[in-house]
């Protein structure tokens, strides 16, 4: 019994610590509230406890006790639903929307983090039970590092080059890098956009990147990230100033135009580079033979 208590204690502590480390509060401002922290830490603690208890259950041996892990899975799916619902409600009042892909990605991340907390607890408890406390500490370190690495998703900067481009008007049409963005009717708005606006071009490095950037949800995520980090001057009754992302239909490059509060091209490039690549947008046509053949025919010499 004494041994089991240590096992469960070590496992639970490590799992909860893993959840705490993954509970980040950054520009997403979510969960940015003390109650959000309490909810997710408590759920992480429960997940860790479940993972840790499974080990003595197997050691006893009481194999049926392991079935409660299925119960845990059910609980975590609930977490995902809860997060999705909350974010969808908040989305209605966002001036620059996250987009459904981003929301789904965040909700899935919340679910996955609980599994990682549970996995950490399981690994640490197993090490403590059968290999000793030193090994438990080592297992804790390795699984914490693994969770950290697993949860750090890729960013837009990893798949494309982001360069500032000038804005111009062709007649009433706002244009940047040869891409027509939007028709702006009011001359003073045109002047304002030229004076205070910024644009960047996202150049995909290969066909996989191009397919990923093509996703509308991914584009919304890029615009949202830029708007959150630099601020945006658009208002409910001023849709002209809404950030807009359009594709160059010949090259697959994206152009983002925004009228930010902070007019700093370098900051905009940095903000766009750190936008997350959404799981649902990720696409890899180059993994297929057909995709590679199409690339060779289309670009006989080039990289893209």
């Amino acid at each position: 019994m004494e041994g089991h208590l240590a096992t469960i204690g070590f496992g639970t502590a490590a799992g909860t610590l893993a959840r705490l480390l993954m509970l980040r509060n950054d520009y997403r401002q979510y969960p940015g509230y003390p109650h959000g922290y309490v909810i997710h830490l408590s759920l992480g603690f429960i997940a860790a406890a479940l993972g840790a208890v499974a080990v003595p259950a197997i050691a006893e041996p009481d194999f049926t006790a392991v079935t409660f892990l299925a119960l845990a899975a059910q609980q975590f799916r609930e977490v995902r639903n809860m997060e999705r619902k909350t974010l969808e409600k908040l989305e209605e009042l966002e001036l620059v929307k996250r987009g459904p892909d981003y929301i789904e990605g965040m909700a899935r991340t919340f679910e996955a983090r609980n599994y990682l907390a549970m996995g950490t607890a399981l690994a640490v408890a197993a090490a403590c039970q059968w290999a000793g406390r030193e090994w438990a500490a080592a297992a804790a370190f390795i699984s914490l590092l693994a969770s950290w690495r697993l949860m750090a998703g890729r960013t837009v900067g990893a798949i494309c080059d982001v360069v500032p481009v000038p804005l111009e008007f062709r007649g009433a049409v706002l244009t940047a890098a040869g891409v027509a963005l939007v028709n702006v009717g009011a001359p003073e708005m045109r002047e304002k956009i030229l004076r205070e606006g910024l644009a960047v071009c996202l150049k995909p490095r290969d066909a996989d990147a191009r397919a990923t950037l093509d996703d509308l949800g991914q584009r919304m995520a890029v615009a949202h990230t830029a708007a959150v980090i630099l601020g945006t001057k658009n208002e409910i009754d001023l849709p002209e100033l809404t950030p807009v992302v359009r594709k160059n239909i010949d090259t697959g490059e994206l152009v983002l135009a925004i009228v930010p509060f902070v007019r700093d091209p370098e900051a905009l490039v940095a903000a766009v580079r750190r936008a997350p690549i959404l799981e649902s947008a990720r696409s890899r046509p180059l993994r297929t033979g057909a995709g590679r053949a199409a690339r060779r025919r289309r670009y006989p010499r080039g990289m893209v």
């Binding site: 028709n183 702006v184 009717g185 009011a186 409910i236 849709p239």
Partner: peptide
Amino acid sequence: QQKIAAYLARILNGMVHDLENGVLI
């Protein structure tokens, strides 16, 4: 014309577009 279009856009939460033939929508 510009002034009316701007007012309407603010009132109706819409956006002014210029068709470049003398029509603002």
